[in-house]
Structure formats: structure tokens, C-alpha cells
Design a protein around this nucleic acid. Sequence first.
DNA 1: GTGAAAGCGCTAACAA
DNA 2: TTGTTAGCGCTTTCAC
Lengths: 332, 332
Amino acid sequence: MTITIYDVAREANVSMATVSRVVNGNPNVKPATRKKVLDVIKRLEYRPNEVARGLASKKTTTVGVIIPDMSNIFYAELARGIEDIATMYRYNIILSNSDQREDKELQLLETMFGKQVDGIVFMSEHVSIDLLNMMERSPVPIVLAGTIDATGHMPSVNIDYHQAAFEAVNRLLQNNHKRIAYVSGSLSSTINRAFKFTGYEKALAQAGIELDNDLVVESEATYDAGYTAFNKLKSINDAPTAYFAGNDELAIGLIHGVQDAGLNVPNDVEVISFENSKLARMVRPELTSVVLPLYDIGAVSMRLLTKYMNKEKIEEKTVILPHRICERNSVK
Amino acid sequence: MTITIYDVAREANVSMATVSRVVNGNPNVKPATRKKVLDVIKRLEYRPNEVARGLASKKTTTVGVIIPDMSNIFYAELARGIEDIATMYRYNIILSNSDQREDKELQLLETMFGKQVDGIVFMSEHVSIDLLNMMERSPVPIVLAGTIDATGHMPSVNIDYHQAAFEAVNRLLQNNHKRIAYVSGSLSSTINRAFKFTGYEKALAQAGIELDNDLVVESEATYDAGYTAFNKLKSINDAPTAYFAGNDELAIGLIHGVQDAGLNVPNDVEVISFENSKLARMVRPELTSVVLPLYDIGAVSMRLLTKYMNKEKIEEKTVILPHRICERNSVK
DNA sequence: GTGAAAGCGCTAACAA
DNA sequence: TTGTTAGCGCTTTCAC
């Protein structure tokens, strides 16, 4: 038998409204009766039913988080930032994996609406029109974390990927490389295609180097793919002497490819990464990398969401966090 | 204006009970009226309010997951297994980080009870008495995933850590090592202390080697800690020639320590790990490791939980999954 | 096969 | 300062 607010009221000889008041910290309760109620609550081990509360108040203090893959270190870090800020603001999180499948993303949004979440943080490498339509008709605020909405309609938090990629490639250019490869994750990812790739392009153009499509390889964003990419590129004519890797795993795969070919990083081949997860220090040489502040992106997204949920005034609906390059030893 | 079951009923000229029946797939509805209702639902874009449903039915189809740190690759993998099976059974997941702090764990349980979750999957390196007491008085089933309950009262899924550690150390013994170090994560972790350590102990004893406490180093379970541990042990008298690492990060730190000291793995020093995450293949040499089936532990835990939630008969309340050693190149 | 009506446990006016 | 009373949107008997 679960005990309800009504039981407490009866035991304490007050109305349920009064119990509700003390439970919700409403100041309009005489200290004496507050104490009386609190005592009964403790004695009966009363615990408010948040579902009932949610139905009555139309607020569930839970937010939905839609993530491509929580076992991916990249997204796990983002999610941790989200969760930390969520708990700071007393929200709980319903976390679901979408595996980047649009149908699942759509269905997950639907599920979260049904569960009456107070808001949603959404992550994906590509936001389709259908998704955007659904989001714009959302009953609750949604913010995009580390994900790009081409229309710019949705609140979002990111870094300037284009500029960051530009700088990364420039860092390589600085060492006089003429043949710089871009080993990217999937180019169906908006960030990879429309921002990082164009940053790469721009840096080359500015250095007067013609883009060679043979030097841009699209693959999964994994260690094996990096390894494979190097082995594919090492034997082409005029092979690249430097690599811009889409993420740390790719970079490590690349480096091991180089080393297994009897070459040295950074003396024979230089590699710059784009992520700076804790993996970056777990290779020899350690990775020089653009630092993507994943945790912060998650945290700021959630903070932004709380502002929407509280109907606070929003200064920046599209926030761009700063980035930098962390110098280590994969680039001279 | 959100539209409710009542709106649908009115538009379809039926009672809300009938709408409820079609929404819930109750067969006692004439096909014609079912169709009529379905049409109205589609036209009005009606979406059932799961909170109201939860209040009325006393089931929320959501389960709580308490995890030490979701940004830790180890737990993230476990959580992914949990989530996959949860969605397979149409549950959603409320995920919260405890950072292994008992007060947070306690409070998180309380929160989840309040949210009326239908069940809980709990992970922690140490389950205190207070926690156990609270769990035994839980209104909903709880299963422990990859975590040990000394009393054996709670349902749980694990591997035989003791035996696995025993085998790992034996693998090293097989190569005639006499000085084998155990670089563990925190020994306040029940698994590390009561199972892996004793497995190590037993293997040594059986080989007639006396336990040397200088060779067991307790640290964080991180890359840096592994690196540091090697540097601490390399210069002691009769330094270890083989290492049993508590997890992959530790193992990689150890290996880089060895290499930075100008030594070779596995020729000068051998290292065996205990985890086999994807990191295991991202070092040179690749790690020989006990494979801890994290994803499966998560998946099986969740499956077990569904059985409890459905009040199915439970065959094994304490499930032990099989393990094995994956041979790669950090051990000869 | 369908409807009426009583809750589920709480919040939030509104009165007193 | 406290109590009364409607709901919140749905499920679930129980009749018909």
C-alpha cells in the first residue's frame, strides 16, 4: 500500500492542501503545522508521486535527450555535460539512442512528447527537413547540442567548425606541406561536409594549393577506418605528407598505419586531429588536436534549455563556443 | 491546446472508453468503429499523455538506470546494452550519474522511486549496507549490472571475476614470470578487492610464489595511473617482468611507460589487461586481455529486470556470464 | 461491443 | 494560515 498525501493529511489533522504546501516549500504555512506535517511525512515515509504531480502541474521535471550512440566516447562526453547541468537544475534525463536513423529520431521525439518531457536536447549528424518540421511544431523547447540545423531556426550550441578546420589545416600548411589529406568521417554529416571540409578547402585555396579529391577520404569515424585510409593513400602518386583527421580515433588509426609502414610521425608524416578526447594522450606521439569542448557543449545546451523552459529571455539562440588547438607531438 | 482522449471521443461520436480501447489495442471494438476512431486520432494528431496513463495504470514504462559515470567508456558500454534491451521491450530509461558517491546513490534511488519507474538497473563499485537496505525495501524490482552485492540478496549479472583474474595471471605465469605486478583500480571496489585480487593471489599461491605487497599498486583506473605505476615499479629491487592490469586504460599507460623507458612489450615486459574495450586494439602492441562482455552484462541485466517487472518466473537470480581471454600481442 | 463513472495522487484556484 | 473543490488525462470496472 503506497501512502499518499491524503494519508499524511489525515494523520496530521490538516487538509491535503496544507500537506501539499509543506511538500512544495510554500511559505504560507505556520511553522508549527509545518513541523507537524513534516513529522508525519517522516513517520509514514511519505514520498510524493511525481507522476501525479506531473499530471496536475503539467511539468515533469524531466528532459529528453536523443543521442546517436551513448557508447561512443564523443557523445558520451556531451551527454555527461547535459546530465550534470540537468541535475543541477533538478531535472532528470530520459536518454535514448537513435543510431542516426531518421525514423528512430522521429519516433523518439514522438515518444518524448508523449512522456510529457519539459524539453529536449537533440544530437545528430544530420537534421532532415522532416525532423525540422517536427521540431518546430514541438510542444516543448528543443535545443541542438553539437549539431547543425541548416535553417538556423533551432537553438543550438556548437563551435565554429569551419574556422577550426581552417586553422587545423593551416597548422599543417605552416610546416610547408603541399599534399594534405582530409580523412573525414561520413560526409553525410553536416559538420563534416559543410564546415570541416570547406575549412580544409579554404585553407588549401588560400595557400594556393589545388584541391585533390583523391586526398579526401570519407569513411567511418573509427580507428580501423583511419588505419585503412592511410594504407590506401600511402601508395598513391605523390602521397600525402600530412593528414587532417576528423576525430581522434581516425587520427590514431592513421598514426599506427604510418608506423606499421615503417615511417615516423611527425618526421615523415604529420597528423592533426579534431576532438581532443582523452584518447589524444593515449598514443605515441600524442595528438596535436583541435579541442572540441564536448562536455561544455552539452552543459551549455542544457543550460540554454533551462532558460527556454523557464521562459527566460534568451540572449543568444545560436551559441558558438570558443575552440583552440592543443599542441602535442603529432605535428612538428 | 493539447488535445485529449475526450476530444477524440467527441469527434468520433464514441465514449472515451472506446477511444482508450483502440489506443490500447483492446480487441473488443468493432472494426468499423475502430477505423472511425483511428481516423479521428490521425486527423486531430492525438497523442496519448503517458503521464496520465501512468497515473491511472500505475505503470510508467520507464526504468531508472544509476551509473557511476556515463562518460566512462566502461559504463557507457554497459548502459548501451541496457538501453537496447529496454527499447526492445518498449521501456524508456532515466539515466543518472552517481559518481560512486553513496549519498548520491541513495538520493537517486529515492528520486527514481518518486518518479514511479517500473524497475531499476543499478551499477556501482561498492554497494553499502545502507544501499542494500534501501534496495530491499524498494517498491520496484532492482537488478545489479556488473556490480557485486556481498549478501547475494539482489538479482545481478556479472562474470566470474575471481576466476577470470586467476586465468589472466596464470597466462602470465605460463611464461615463467616470477615477479608479476597487479595494477588495480581502487581497492574499495568490491570486484577489484574481493575477486580480482584474490584471483591474482590464488594464481601466485598455486605457482608457489609468495605474494609481494609491493607489487600490488592501487590507483585510479586511468591511463596516467598506469603510466605512473610502471614508473614506480620499474626501479624497485627485482622489478616485475609482467603486469596484470585492472583495465585497458591502465594497461595502455603501463605499456607506454615501458616503452618510454626504452623497453619492449612483450619482450622485456608482458602486460595482460582486463576489459577488452575497443581501446585494446588501439595500442601497439595490441592488448591481450580478459574480455569483459560489458554490453552483454547490460543487456542481460535489463532482460532480467523485464522478467521481474512482468512477474515472470526467474530461473537464475544471480547470473554469471562466460568470459575468455583474447590473445593479442602484449603477452607472448 | 460500448458507455458511464469512479478513481489514480496531486496542484491550484478560490474561499474562508 | 488553512480548507474545499475542481480538475489534470487516462484506465478500468461494471452495466447495458
